[in-house]
């Protein structure tokens, strides 16, 4: 727990550091994430720190004290604009409500990279994110393939109105349309919360005697659903999204069928890389949408590495990671 942001495994990237250190370094990059509680954003922060260290820049982390608080993130933007960091790597807590904040950053002429949730407005020098829709589609397809294209399915949704949830659930539903043999029993929200997902699942099992597949919009809810199934001594195939450590462990032990890789680490790395490259007048990629990868029992090994020991992709690899 305490091995906080480890900067241990960097020597590997000396070469990369060497090649990009040509210009002035020591820039300060402000990283904005949504909350301190979701493991996903921790992977983003570690990725960003990792890349900044490699490129000899500094990061400052800005996280609302109340998870996902819109007024607080707006205040933090206003404070940061006074502080004038060299560049900002920005995840909006809400993709529509934070637009005025982005515009403030634009007015202050601080270069900003958008990561994770695509902001509905404002000017960014680059976007780095994953495609929630295809992640939902691909993981759901994988589950339906495993079930032979039929069976009773339930969807556990995330927070209503959040961009990730809208797209992931749309992906789930489109995959279900491709398999006419599968039947959607219910689609209920678990608000990305473990306990809520567990209780929703427990309740759904009461009204449905046969559930074959569970599509959960994130890993915490998927694992909550698995605990509910275990508690009732029932079996179903479950998938989640995000590729968190806990999901990888569950895949390893055969409890979770698959998880869509949201790759926060790469998002943090590449977002920070683009910000620093633009400051150093090097070319940047204006849009990186990471390819959807479904993590399963057959390919989990590369993901089963502690965050601190992972290495950021290089600029050359970045282009290949993108789906477009």
């Amino acid at each position: 727990m305490k091995q906080k942001l480890g900067y241990l495994a960097l020597p590997l990237l000396m070469a990369a550091a060497f090649s990009t250190q040509a210009r002035a370094d020591g820039e300060t990059i402000a990283i904005f994430t949504k909350n301190q509680t979701n493991p996903f954003f921790q992977t983003v922060r570690v990725g960003a720190d990792n890349m900044a260290k490699t490129l000899n820049a500094k990061t400052l982390q800005y996280i609302p004290t109340k998870p996902d608080s819109i007024p607080e993130q707006l205040s933090q933007i206003e404070d940061v604009v006074v502080k004038k960091p060299s560049a900002i790597v920005f995840t909006p807590v809400d993709y529509k409500a934070m637009v005025p904040g982005v515009e403030k950053i634009n007015e202050a002429k601080i270069p900003v990279v958008n990561i994770t949730d695509r902001s509905a407005g404002g000017k960014f020098l680059s976007f780095v994110g994953a495609d929630d829709y295809s992640l939902g589609l691909e993981t759901a397809r994988f589950l339906l393939k495993t079930l032979g294209g039929k069976g009773n399915i339930v969807i556990i949704e995330g927070v209503k109105g959040s961009l990730t949830n809208v797209d992931r659930v749309r992906g789930f539903n489109d995959a279900l349309k491709e398999s006419p043999g599968a039947k959607l029993l219910a689609s209920q929200p678990g608000n990305y919360q473990r306990l809520q997902a567990l209780q929703v699942m427990e309740n759904l099992m009461q009204s449905n005697s046969q559930i074959d597949g569970v599509l959960a919009a994130n890993d915490a809810m998927a694992v909550g659903a698995i605990e509910a199934l275990d508690g009732a001594n029932r079996k179903a195939q479950v998938i989640g999204i995000n590729g968190t450590k806990e999901a990888i462990d569950a895949i390893k032990s055969g409890k979770l069928l698959a998880s869509g890789d949201y790759n926060g680490f790469a998002q943090g790395c590449l977002g920070t890389m683009m910000a620093i490259r633009s400051l150093r007048n090097q070319p940047v990629i204006s849009e990186i949408v990471l390819k959807p990868t479904v993590i399963t029992k057959d390919n989990y090994q590369p993901f089963d590495v502690p965050l601190e020991q992972r290495t950021c992709p290089t600029f050359e690899e970045a282009g290949k990671l993108s789906a477009k």
């Binding site: 996902d68 819109i70 007024p71 707006l74 809400d94 529509k96 409500a97 934070m98 637009v99 005025p100």
Partner: peptide, 10 residues
């Protein structure tokens, strides 16, 4: 401030 309305803002 948000140039929008949001169901959990306050």
């Amino acid at each position: 401030r948000m140039n929008s309305g949001h169901p959990t803002a306050g």
